[in-house]
């Protein structure tokens, strides 16, 4: 069993988050990744609402794949590369292109769903920079917003697409 990672009772393990190794100590087995990110590592950008994978407010990238951190067993995420919304934001006070677009288009009202949407939309535009409106709608179908309304959110995604293509045209 050379390469099997074994995590004993009251678990201690390492998680790689936003390019850095974090030591998690004295954790319980059933803790989901969202809980560990927020309560043990102090990364509170990912939000906790449904704990069922329904609302998408806890969305993170795991080995480059968009997933709900609430339905991921934290201890089983050892060895994976986790990127949270904090990891998508430039250091300091800057905002990413997608975040700028959300602000500019008024796609943030209460803001609770915003971090999850930022992660989903960033993932979409990395994979499909020219996503159509239908593709945008499908890409954010796992992110529930109950107050801003999807019209402004879709407008923000399209604004981010324009900003990105304008930037690339300049290169």
């Amino acid at each position: 069993m050379t390469n099997t990672t074994s995590v004993p009772e009251l678990l201690s393990y390492t998680l790689n988050v936003n390019g850095r190794d974090h030591q998690v100590s004295d954790a319980e087995l059933g803790e989901n990744l969202l809980f560990v990110l927020r309560e043990r590592l102090g990364l509170r950008g990912s939000k906790n609402a449904c704990e069922q994978g329904e609302c998408g407010s806890c969305s993170v990238l795991v080995d480059g794949r968009l997933e709900c951190s609430c339905t991921m067993l934290a201890a089983a995420a050892t060895g994976r590369q986790i990127v949270t919304v904090e990891g998508l934001t430039p250091s300091g006070d800057g905002l990413s292109e997608v975040q700028e677009a959300f602000v500019a288009e008024g796609a943030v009202q209460c803001g609770f769903c915003t971090p999850g949407l930022i992660v989903s939309v960033s993932d979409l535009l990395d994979r499909l920079p020219l996503a159509t409106e239908l593709e945008i709608r499908e890409a954010i179908s796992g992110n529930l917003c109950r107050c801003t309304g999807y019209g402004r959110i879709i407008a923000a995604v399209q604004a981010a697409q324009h900003a990105r293509s304008a930037r690339e045209a300049l290169r």
Binding site: V7, L29, G53, A75, A76
Partner: peptide, 29 residues
């Protein structure tokens, strides 16, 4: 309450030999 993350099928079976009642976890959804 351990968590095992085997890196091969052989290792998964080796773990299960010692803990046949273990809960298998796939995507977790």
């Amino acid at each position: 309450m351990p968590v095992f993350v085997p890196a091969s099928l052989e290792e998964a079976f080796a773990v299960l030999e010692g803990a046949p009642g273990a809960q298998l976890l796939a995507g977790g959804t």
